[in-house]
Design a protein around this nucleic acid. Structure first.
Lengths: 129, 129
DNA sequence: CTTGACCTTCCCCTCGCTGGAACCCTCATA
DNA sequence: TATGAGGGTTCCAGCGAGGGGAAGGTCAAG
């Protein structure tokens, strides 16, 4: 398979696939003309990476997850720990965003949103609040 | 005031303050020795920026907000619209993160987390789910 | 033979800083 | 008077995870 084929089959942009090769996540062979030549296993890895990335894992986490996946003597505890740490980071981000949302939401609710200049949002930002 | 003073009084790192000057958010004067020389108004702007950034506004949003703040004939509707758009982006991010959290949370719950290799997390990532 | 779709490498851009190198300024102390 | 500490200055590189686009090679169809 050429890169366009794996791109459409994995849903990942060709640029991303080249990047993943660049950083050593996949190692496709090369055809005589210099084109990357992907096997089914490469496609499988790319799909794996795409799903892991969609769950928000970092590239380095993905590297670890792939290594665990390929290690048949892995302990599921290692996978679970990685996932739990990631889950904790997600929770932290959600909490941060929710705090922002709450503060900003209140300010927005207090703002008349008309043609007058008086604005509680700017008032708060300026420290007059 | 030198940069160290505004840094400690605004809570922003000196690097960040230099960066904000670089991109034209503030324009401190210079002393004879070449040092940046900050007035109270600069400090006030930096505090404004710090609060806007803490609410998750992008630098470009901050630039617009500062312009609105300094424009005495602004309409609060313009501020409110910007804030509402930002609020919508925050909500989108929260929703994305919550979706990740839900999926990953279920997988984590299904994973024994022991010394055996069998792992529903990896199974899902590999597409066997 | 040419066209168009595909592939290659290469380098710069994103965003919001952060770290570090190399150097200048000022003040206090030995 | 040297010197050292603790400011300040500039510029360059890098982070994560790719994206955009140029310049050029390859291949199948018409």
């Amino acid at each position: 398979m050429n890169i366009g084929d794996v791109s459409s089959r994995s849903g990942l942009p060709a640029k991303t696939i080249r990047y993943y090769e660049d950083i050593g996540l996949i190692k496709p062979h090369r055809s005589a003309n210099g084109y990357r030549c992907f096997a089914e296993t490469d496609l499988h890895k790319l799909a794996f990476l795409g799903r892991a990335r969609a769950l928000g894992f970092t590239i380095e986490d993905c590297r670890t997850l792939m290594a665990l996946y390929e290690d048949e003597s892995r302990a599921s505890a290692d996978v679970k720990q990685l996932a739990q740490e990631h889950l904790a980071k997600i929770e932290e981000k959600i909490a941060d965003l929710q705090a922002m949302h709450e503060t900003l939401g209140e300010l927005v609710n207090c703002c008349a949103g008309d043609s007058r200049p008086d604005c509680p949002i700017l008032k708060d930002l300026s420290g007059e609040g």
